[in-house]
C-alpha cells in the first residue's frame, strides 16, 4: 500500500441535450426571463480592429446540419490580448471587449453567425507566436463531452502556427481555416465544423 493522493476527480460530462437553449439562450427556447442574455456582444462598441462576421454550420456524419447546436467562442482582441487577468497585458483591453460569445444555430437551417473583431496574434509556448485564431467549444444533443477546436483566418500566413503544425495529416489542416469573402461590404469568414466523416474537423484535447 502507498499513501493515497488526495485529488478530487473532475465531474463527468453529460450531453447538453436538445433543450440547452432554455438555460443558456432562453429567448431561442421561446420565452423571455432574464434582463440580459450572456455572450451576445463579443467585442463591444469601442474595440479596435477589423469588424468581421463569421458564419457556418455544424455538420454531422451524414452531412446534415446540426440544428440544435450551441457554440461558445473565446478570442483575444486586435492586439492579441485576452480579457482575462492572467493575460500580462490585461489592463490594455478596451472597455466592453469580453472576447466571449455564445451562438446558437437556426432551428431550420442549422446556420449560425456572429459578429466580432478579428483577433491579433498572441504568444504561444516557448516564445513562439500563434497565428490569430478564435477558440470554439461545441455542445449539442448527442455530443457527450463538449468539443474544442480553433478557427484560423484564410488571409493570414498560418504556416508558422505551432498548433496547426502539430496536425500530422496535412490534408486536415484546412479544416481549421475559415474562408474570407466580402458580402455587401461586410468582411465574412465562413467556417463549417464537420463532426464526423469526410473533412472531419480537427478537434483538440486541451
Amino acid at each position: 500500500m502507498t499513501q493515497s493522493l488526495s485529488y478530487l476527480r473532475e465531474t463527468p460530462s453529460q450531453t447538453a441535450g436538445p433543450y440547452v437553449h432554455i438555460g443558456l439562450a432562453p429567448g431561442a427556447a421561446g420565452f423571455q426571463i432574464y434582463d440580459q442574455e450572456l455572450g451576445t456582444d463579443i467585442a463591444g462598441p469601442t474595440a479596435k480592429g477589423e469588424r468581421i462576421r463569421v458564419t457556418g454550420r455544424v455538420l454531422d456524419g451524414t452531412g446534415t446540419p446540426v440544428r440544435d447546436v450551441l457554440l461558445e467562442t473565446w478570442q483575444a482582441n486586435a492586439d492579441g490580448i485576452y480579457a482575462h487577468p492572467e493575460d500580462p497585458r490585461f489592463d490594455a483591453v478596451e472597455d466592453g471587449f469580453r472576447g466571449w460569445g455564445r451562438i446558437i444555430s437556426d432551428f431550420d437551417t442549422g446556420e449560425w453567425a456572429f459578429e466580432t473583431i478579428k483577433p491579433g496574434a498572441c504568444a504561444g509556448r516557448n516564445g513562439a507566436m500563434q497565428a490569430p485564431h478564435i477558440s470554439f467549444w461545441i455542445v449539442a444533443r448527442g455530443i457527450n463531452l463538449g468539443l474544442t477546436t480553433r478557427m484560423y483566418f484564410s488571409d493570414v500566413d498560418n504556416s508558422k502556427d505551432p498548433v496547426i503544425n502539430m496536425v500530422e495529416h496535412d490534408v486536415r489542416r484546412d479544416t481549421l481555416i475559415a474562408k474570407r469573402s466580402i458580402e455587401n461590404g461586410t468582411v465574412v469568414y465562413h467556417f463549417d465544423i464537420v463532426l464526423q466523416g469526410e473533412n472531419e474537423t480537427v478537434f483538440f484535447d486541451i
Binding site: 454531422d60 451524414t62 504568444a123 477558440s135 448527442g142 468539443l147 474544442t148
Partner: peptide
C-alpha cells in the same frame, strides 16, 4: 452520427486555453 472518428489532438495549453 455526431461523434468524431478521429482522436482529438492533445494540445499543450497556451494563453488561449488558460484564460476564459
Amino acid at each position: 452520427s455526431r461523434s468524431p472518428r478521429f482522436a482529438a489532438l492533445s494540445l499543450d495549453q497556451t494563453v488561449s486555453e488558460i484564460t476564459g
